[in-house]
Design a protein around this nucleic acid. Sequence first.
DNA 1: CGACGGGACGC
DNA 2: CGACGGGACGC
Length: 803
Amino acid sequence: MDRYRGGDRYNNPNDSQPYRHPRGPPPSRSSNDSPINRHRGGFSGNRRPFDNSPPRYALNSGGGGPGFRPVDGDGGFRPVGVRNARSYNNNNNPSSEFEVPLSGPRFSSDYEVPLSGQKRPFDFPGRGGSPIERFGGGGFEKRSFDGDGYDKRHGDGGNFSRKQSDGGNLAKLFVGSVPKTATEDDIRPPFEEHGNVIEVALIKDKRTGQQQGNTVFASAGCCFIKYATSEEADRAIRALHNQYTLPGGVGPIQVRYADGERERIGSVEFKLFVGSINKQATEKEVEEIFSSYGRVEDVYLMRDEMKQSRGCGFVKYSNRDVAMAAINALNGIYTMRGCEQPLIVRFADPKRPRPGEPRGSPASGGPGFGPRIPSPGIRPPNYGEAMQAPVNQNAWHPMNQQGMLPSDVSMHNKQSSAPSFNPSLPQLSSGSQIISPLNKPNQSPQQFSSGMAPSNVRPSGPGQLQAPNSGGQTQASFSQGFSSQPMAGYNGMLPPQQAQAQAQAQGVASSTTPPALSNNMPPHVLTAMMNQYQLPNQQQQMVQPVHQSASPMAQMLSQQKQTLQASYQSSQQAFSQLQQQMQLMQPSNPSLTPQQNLQGARLQQSSWAGSVPQTSATSGGSNVKPTDSLPAASVAPLMPPAGGPVKCNWTEHTSPDGYKYYYNSTTGESKWEKPEELALFEQQKPQEQLQQKQQVASIQQPHSQTNIQSLPNQQTQIPQLQPQSHLQTQMQAQGRHPQQLQPAVQSSSYQNTGVAGHQNMQGYGYAQMPVAGGSMNDSARYQQGMQGPQDWMWKNKTTGPGA
DNA sequence: CGACGGGACGC
DNA sequence: CGACGGGACGC
């Protein structure tokens, strides 16, 4: 979650000045907490490494600056050495530095429980031998422990073959920003707090010498940490990433799965690209905005050489629904204070392979190697498709439902027969996710954690918003089938009030009763709400409010919406919806062309309903709920129907760079290496591909049949998307009503959103730029909004998978 | 099982 | 309008 480099590295100098801390120092939190090694802040914290739910930023992230709490009184001066000492001191008793991790109570209590409790790979925790001994012993330098660990483990896993158990279960983390002077003893302790560290592997500079000790501050080294379980690894990541500074370190360590680990473990993350971020904003602020929709796993702001923000970055979630909810609620809607443009929020493109890195060429289909590229990112490759399948509002909801209804359970159990988007689902699911954030995005973590709205917060602040904060609960409700971690964590973070809100929200969701509206609500929230409550049958265009809605609430919402939405925002929303659709889609037949994939998606969907995609046994996909795909509509340009049986959720795509990559529509995972599944799948069904021409019927073929059975019906059921037309509609609408909407919206949004949470900040850094003639720029904005899509299309076309 | 350099789309 | 930091597998 909140892993930012403590104020030091990341925050620009500017931060300290202008921007920083509008909010002022957080309430109490931290007298002890040093920005560094924050996770250790309180002892309580230590004890419960698992509960990291509460936001752990150093509140001062922005403010490491002056006036801030120097790291424990260091007062700004932080000689490395000192810091080290301190960091450890903070953590535990100095003396126990080493012992702690392994020492009894803490270790056992924290871990076992949460963990699988049942099996503890190592028995050593409780037992006498302290790691120290081991360390000290022979291999103080390193791996002395390894052997031990492994052996023990083997013992445990008796049932399994050693190799399997080890290799299969171990979760390897990559740790960056490790001072070259760091030793295993420095590194192990913090990690031991979150699990049994099986191994610590320091990497020596491979090329240059091999020693680690380059005096230079510069590049730090790195190391690998192995845990027996991914749970432990996850905890460590959450607790330490960008939050813990090793002795001698210049900045917090970066902790993440080693390349290929995520895929291997089946962990997926959903990365969003976020544009139009105020350049003065810090990671923390961005997180605050995005945390309204679910736990933010990481925030990375792009910066230039000077560490100045480039105004864009990446936000990671571990749950797709949450990611989509964020897109829905923020993209084109939420404007950071001081910004003229609303945030651009979309699934990120796969990280572009870098020269030296990729071991195997990206393009290679070779199933072979370990994935070097970890980023299971997130992006549906099917841009073209998406575009084509724009958002039909009607369709949209249904889609969401399915897509969002994550749980396999729901799909399997409930609607196994037909995915028809039935009445029952709509509001619930769609609403849940999307909308939820009734909290102000701006809401600051502190509020959450403290549970009380600081007086300094402005009246209309978050606290005021009693609106159901559906975010948390919603997700919880619908994310069962999913990884489960996200929501839980999220809920945990909620303060009492929030919790209540959630409860309300839930009630709402289930009852379909709209939550109370508040004038204070930020536009994006309102929009979200509106969306949530939109009736399925309505043909609401983003721009056109849904007056027709039957329910009064709906009407209210629509009105509000009308008022709030800006013309260009609408286009952006459409845009985001498209994205979502893409996400939802489940392209199935890998070899199909994009268009074909579209078809495939449909099929898939249907197949889905019928039998769940076991196919997704794929990497990590298994736990993930299958999402349904939205059938894309047909866009003028193309449309070969085709359907391939859907069996594999992986599809091949070509990135803008010309590299081929593979995307799993079910898990949202994307990788450069061709998944074995896909390869197998292709082998199995070479012919089907050829048959694509509108042979939906053909789908009924034997092998594919099971999956596809209900196809026909479903198709019908599936809302037909009207891609471009929809966009056009919106566009037109924009042209017509822009002015009307803009002004009001802007002002309100500005105040409510930008100002709300960060009220205090106004005077400081961000320049407040009230949107003056919003309408004036409509066209330009509009353009922008469209640009994205266009770009996608462009990319897609030029780089069709076929190539 | 490949493996350098240096430069890096187009709008 | 901004697209991935910076390090990456020793034994």
